[in-house]
């Protein structure tokens, strides 16, 4: 089924996208519960067609709007959710998501390295991915009013709303409800790699603040910025391209 939809207005609907999706959800429920009569030209007979929504494909900000999960801040990863390992960079004023060593196997030698990573050994195990049931239990209490409302300062919750997709009876039983779009991830990773390698201004992830953060974390101290009079000298990192 292919359906094009146009949402008018100068701004994006954001979390209110559920209002626009509700006709689609009604159709999908009908298709799942009862099905419709469809003519099969090959067999020359009618049959009952049923349908289910398999997964949605969207970029990462839209992931947040559709699922109601928060995709920024300290709990940004929608699959690790509460167990997302983050690190707040003091000088760069960013959140970075390091600590991938916890996904390694138990006896991998990288788990024991200290100075190369963040100064300590890693003994946490990989977090189990979030299932649909768990998500449903978390969101079923959340109530939300759509449209322009006054922002009330309530309790902070990772889940912003109960997504309208949960009205489909099978939605909480799916393991992957929203796909991560490979295209967008690839583009962003490629942008940051090329920006860092070629040292493009505004795109590079390296800089004086990044070096200060390295000092703060206590790793690779040979890269720390060295003051030379008025100027500061940044020693070349291993990813600096030599021509």
């Amino acid at each position: 089924m292919m359906l094009s939809m146009m949402i008018s207005g100068p701004r994006q609907p954001g979390n209110d996208i559920d209002v626009y999706l509700s006709p689609l959800i009604d159709d999908l429920r009908l298709l799942w519960d009862e099905g419709i009569e469809v003519f099969d030209a090959h067999e020359k007979a009618n049959f009952n067609l049923r349908e289910m929504l398999f997964c949605t494909i969207n970029d990462f900000p839209a992931y947040g709007n559709l699922s109601g999960d928060s995709v920024k801040g300290h709990r940004a990863c929608p699959i690790c959710e509460e167990n997302t390992s983050y690190h707040q960079l003091k000088h760069g004023r960013k959140t970075c998501y390091i600590g991938h060593r916890r996904f390694l196997k138990r006896n991998h030698p990288y788990r024991r390295l200290k100075i190369t990573f963040n100064g300590c050994q890693e003994d946490r195990t990989a977090p189990p991915p979030l299932t649909g049931k768990e998500v449903y239990n978390r969101v079923c209490q959340v109530d939300i009013t759509y449209g322009k409302t006054l922002k009330h300062s309530g309790v902070k919750n990772i889940w912003k709303k109960k997504s309208i997709f949960f009205e489909l009876p099978y939605w909480s039983k799916l393991d992957v409800r929203h796909c991560i779009d490979v295209m967008h991830v690839k583009k962003n990773v490629c942008d940051s790699i090329i920006g860092t390698l070629l040292n493009i201004k505004g795109k590079t992830k390296d800089g004086i603040n990044a070096r200060k953060d390295l000092v703060e974390m206590g790793v690779r101290l040979e890269l720390q910025p060295q003051p030379h009079g008025k100027r500061t000298y940044l020693p070349p990192d291993c990813h600096t391209v030599k021509i």
Binding site: C77, Y97, N188, V189, S192, D206, D213
Partner: peptide, 11 residues
């Protein structure tokens, strides 16, 4: 550098 690791890299 650590600021390279935004959420996209994690995914």
């Amino acid at each position: 550098p650590p600021s390279f690791f935004d959420i996209m890299v994690h995914l």
